[in-house]
Design a protein around this nucleic acid. Sequence first.
DNA 1: CGGGCTTTGTGATCTTGTGCACGAGGGCGG
DNA 2: CCGCCCTCGTGCACAAGATCACAAAGCCCG
Lengths: 215, 215
Amino acid sequence: MTDRARRIPEATVARLPVYLRSLAELHDDKIATVSSERLAEMAGVNAAKVRKDLSYLGSYGTRGVGYDVEYLSFQMSRELGLTHDWPVVIVGAGNLGQALANYGGFRQRGFPVAALVDASREKVGGYIHGVPVHHMDDLPELAADLGIAIGIIATPASAAQEVADALAAAGIRSILNFAPTVIAVPEGTSLRKVDLALELQVLSFYQEHRDTEGV
Amino acid sequence: MTDRARRIPEATVARLPVYLRSLAELHDDKIATVSSERLAEMAGVNAAKVRKDLSYLGSYGTRGVGYDVEYLSFQMSRELGLTHDWPVVIVGAGNLGQALANYGGFRQRGFPVAALVDASREKVGGYIHGVPVHHMDDLPELAADLGIAIGIIATPASAAQEVADALAAAGIRSILNFAPTVIAVPEGTSLRKVDLALELQVLSFYQEHRDTEGV
DNA sequence: CGGGCTTTGTGATCTTGTGCACGAGGGCGG
DNA sequence: CCGCCCTCGTGCACAAGATCACAAAGCCCG
Ligand SMILES: NC(=O)c1ccc[n+]([C@@H]2O[C@H](COP(=O)([O-])OP(=O)(O)OC[C@H]3O[C@@H](n4cnc5c(N)ncnc54)[C@H](O)[C@@H]3O)[C@@H](O)[C@H]2O)c1
Ligand SMILES: NC(=O)c1ccc[n+]([C@@H]2O[C@H](COP(=O)([O-])OP(=O)(O)OC[C@H]3O[C@@H](n4cnc5c(N)ncnc54)[C@H](O)[C@@H]3O)[C@@H](O)[C@H]2O)c1
């Protein structure tokens, strides 16, 4: 119902968290104001891009001065939906799922791990780093009761699509997939993926080409 | 010294591993030939894009028939530099570093973890999942002796830049960064990053906007 | 052996993203 | 209070990427 019809480009959305992190750093250093130039350097991009990106949020800078660190942080957090917590469920209590549950960084950044879920009865029942492990069957109820908005897939690739379907059925519309496979999600569901093997293979490509084609 | 001056676009490079995985699946299913249409479906992209991507590798399809699964796999592996192993060093033997070392998927895909490295004397000396833990100081020697080409940064963000510098100094020109911070690397070094907090914040953005703006 | 069918390979076009350059606007010193 | 200087905000041109559409090419069947 906001009057501004500004749709933020995808590429910009992916950079906002980087700017936000830079702003947090500046805030810790008690720096009140920052120029696009400085912010660009911290975020590893160019200054014009910073200004264009920030302009999508509104006109929050002061010409001749720069951006107020605290105010911009607030506006950015609001835009990113970080003014409240987003409880997360991790599906797959294996090697990776447990490591993620053990990691404190999520809660700290507003993404508390509310539950772990697994298909194996052996894994169900205990706690990992204070997070209860439930059975897959309880997912819909858990999602509703705990207000879970985001699901993380940490199962073998063979189970990933099935898990994605279960998450969707439980009303979860944001999915982060760690399994090295392509999965389909319903229209209106966001999907992001983390694919280590892919990253290494991309590095391999450039390494190989450096080695082969000189330099 | 190859006559074809075809530079493969970055976006294409990042999709090749996905195609390769699809081809491996087809091979396991004893399917000898695949159309761009089918491959596109498996990789979650559109068929024209598949054809254009593959055309950068060469003209390996047969009109009216499709692509030979095995032959295309080979050509793609060759292009990606996957015909031989790339030993990897993980810097930071903490929660994440250990989890990665424990993961068998790397070795299996041609990226054996040759060593773990840490700055803390307490962590140095033992083995994790059969991988020896060395001190940071030994990095240059290790890199040379073990032929390490890829470094993975799994330290706190505050140490990431310093570690990147050390990797560069040790002659490692491919870096995968897990620390949630922007790092600079020398010209001629490839850098990829995995940033979980960023992924979650991007999901948060779209979730928030779905919630706020209807649908 | 020729015609039809299928699927590739690629020019053309549209969309998205990047970077430059500069006018607009605001603070500040004199 | 005026004018200068600094930095934002943005129009524009360019580059990269996605998609479309179709001719070229090879297989297969009759
Ligand atoms: N461990 C790593 O460091 C790492 C790194 C990169 C990628 N990955 C990927 O992450 C995924 C998980 O890896 P992992 O090492 O934790 O594997 P894992 O085998 O240790 O754990 C998988 C867990 O998923 C559970 N599971 C299996 N099928 C399920 C289903 N249908 N529904 C719910 N739970 C199910 C299993 O019971 C098990 O607990 C894999 O796809 C792997 O390729 C892992
Ligand atoms: N654990 C996770 O699931 C997870 C998830 C997302 C991101 N991360 C990121 O990965 C990084 C590592 O996380 P973690 O949980 O393993 O942290 P950790 O504290 O468990 O481990 C960090 C390790 O790095 C070592 N180290 C510190 N400074 C070093 C230096 N200068 N040189 C070499 N080694 C050094 C420490 O001795 C320690 O062993 C962090 O940046 C974290 O934000 C972790």
